[in-house]
Nucleic acid binder design. Structure first.
Lengths: 389, 389
DNA sequence: CTGAAAGCGCTAACAT
DNA sequence: ATGTTAGCGCTTTCAG
């Protein structure tokens, strides 16, 4: 059995170019401070030998990996029922690639995996992490913060007040409130206090989110603008911040709404059907529905048709997401609130990378900038008008 | 600014346990040939120090990374319009995780990225690769084979097809049933004839695919069994093997079909609409349609309704994929051919991993087994009956 | 069965 | 501006 072809080392390149390893290394890493003729010779040697740096050897000394983990918690299978994560991933990938970083994907499936992910992150195999955690009770965010890895969350994490007595173990809970009450398009405020915990944890918790609340307001205002006075709302699972925020937005516009016009659901088509029936039974006179996502809106549409109600004539319907194989396939096509999911992903990566850069070169200037760095970034949404409202 | 927390090294563990680094290393890597009392002491030291091995240092000497790349070529945006890859990824992730391997995700977006991916793969950063390449003219497969990295393809790559007589239950195409839990060994016969390969290329090209052809046959037979005599077919893009195979399956059952009953399309709903119109114009008397995927079937359904044709009374419709937010949401719900996508992913990973193991320990036994290793594994499909046929 | 020693390929001081 | 010299943390012969 022939041995695998031995890949050329820096040593070989240096020899061929007639320089020292150090010089060869300098050229490979940008070539600053090396005279042109030498640069040229080394470049050629690299070319001829087909040299590729050994990342393991490099990481061993630099302690950088040029790799970031993407952690997707998948408590329910629902996660993959829609292209949501695929799009985020794509945005993330583009940005990471542009900066020569690798994407290590970590999919978690329940409690057992959490330990594994925590270990991996704490193991220093990656420079940072991008984390998607959907539910309130998810232990992942906590675990990850304890791992002391620079992290950006996708979607506003909600670790509001589940843990008192924060003194002691450096367990500093950061409280992040986005646009509570009045804060218009709350580009999340920060409550960053750094406990005496991990010295490696420089800044506050960072996240990127869509402006769910404002999107919801826009949708409901549109309905109201259509002259609809009895607007119902099918919510998502309220232990997810996105669903909670959309409900808040709904309430912002319909301040004293009849509670019977609000029904909690679960972001699924079946859940949407159930909720729609409930709503119809309680308030047969409703003339508009704002569903917290497109999937439940699709379910609602079916029930409406089944009951002989015309959309939008009798009942106007608006969804959320602009999930594409769905929103444009319903009958009638769904008016909905679009969020730029790919851009969210891209932004998450950008945020993390810039943070990593700061860490690499902590000048006084960037150190100051760090303190003022945005902790939450909230992207705008837009209303996409189709036929349902 | 405090320095980053220094993570404990093997040295530290050894010191604390009162042994040499070598012994500590042995314990960390399974502890074979180390006496129980020492094992215990080292284990405790690891625990107390919270030691985690430095993967970079390890890779530097072992030349293993315990990481595999997943390459997804995304020539058109279509790829992410459905949960197909998400499901595969999930299967892959599960299997990889179970074997302590990391998943490095490489998304490509056009020509420029190919070079990058080729370089990365050739750079020896990962132990192997799982590759999804959709189109005939994709240069990726070639690139990758040249990189000399053990690879398993998702979906039959076109160039493994050295077109022998491709009729019937082709003897060139091997059908394999992968029994759940039986591992790779249970799965498969070989279709391998590899031309003189690279020295580093040990075996044949490996891939995992659904039995598209048989699935198509099943679908069409079902239609025929319903008494439909004028069955049309909306194909996918015929430069993808999956679409070509489904067309072959269709033809297997409708041998002398009127060519006007076949219309090439592109796997999209809009394409499905267009194709359906065309078909209806040419053969207004058709009474069944087999669409090459659920998305185009959904488009077809809309056109049928628009023309006042009842489904399934006037025209029976069958799709392919059982893509879930789609197939069960159409009106009427779609009868379709399901492929177990997650299992495909899992199988791909299993295949690659077992190959990597062989390479790591090339005894005469495994070397012999290598020659007989399955080259293509084809998973069965099942018909899911809903209301449309 | 255990320890000592020799690197894996690379970068980063430190010299020159 | 370039070369010299130490390691980074780990596995792995090779002695004992």
């Amino acid at each position: 059995m022939t041995d695998a072809a031995p890949r050329p080392t820096l040593e070989a390149v240096a020899a061929r170019a007639g320089v020292s390893r150090a010089t060869a290394s300098r050229v490979v890493n940008g070539g600053d401070g090396v005279r042109e003729p030498l640069v040229e010779r080394v470049r050629r040697a690299v070319e001829e030998l087909g040299y590729v740096p050994n990342q393991a050897a490099r990481s061993l000394v630099t302690r950088r990996h040029d790799a970031v983990a993407v952690v997707i918690a998948e408590p329910e299978t629902r996660v993959f029922a829609d292209p949501f994560f695929a799009l985020q991933l794509r945005g993330i990938s583009k940005e990471l690639t542009a900066h020569d970083n690798q994407l290590v994907l970590l999919l978690t499936e329940g409690r057992d995996d959490h330990a594994r992910v925590g270990r991996y992150l704490a193991g220093g195999h990656v420079d940072g992490a991008l984390v998607f955690s959907l539910h309130l009770d998810d232990p992942l965010p906590g675990l990850i913060r304890r791992a002391g890895v620079p992290t950006v969350f996708g979607g506003r994490p909600d670790w509001s007040d589940d843990d008192a007595g924060s003194d002691g173990d450096g367990d500093d809970r950061l409280r992040v409130r986005a646009a509570e009450g009045e804060g218009v398009n709350g580009a999340g405020r920060i409550g960053g206090r750094e406990g005496g915990g991990r010295p490696s944890d420089l800044g506050g918790v960072m996240y990127v989110d869509s402006d769910n609340r404002d999107g919801a307001r826009t949708a409901v205002r549109h309905l109201v603008g259509l002259g609809r006075t009895r607007v119902a709302h099918i919510t998502g699972p309220l232990d997810q911040t996105s669903a909670a925020d959309r409900l808040d937005g709904f309430r912002d516009v319909r301040v004293d709404v009849d509670p019977r016009l609000i029904e909690e659901s679960d972001f699924t088509p079946a859940g949407g059907e159930r909720a729609m029936r409930e709503l119809l039974d309680r308030r047969p006179d409703l003339n508009a529905v704002f569903a917290a996502n497109d999937l439940s809106a699709a379910g609602a549409l079916r029930v409406l048709r089944e009951r002989g109600l015309r959309v939008p004539e009798d009942v106007a319907v608006i969804g959320f997401d602009d999930m594409l194989p769905v929103a444009d396939q319903t009958d009638p096509p769904l008016t909905t609130v679009r969020q730029d999911i790919e851009e969210m992903g891209r932004l998450m990566a950008r945020l993390l990378l810039s943070r990593l850069d700061q860490r690499a070169a902590p000048t006084t200037a960037t150190a100051a900038a760090d303190k003022d760095a945005p902790t939450g970034v909230v992207l705008p949404t837009t209303l996409v008008r189709r036929a349902s409202a």
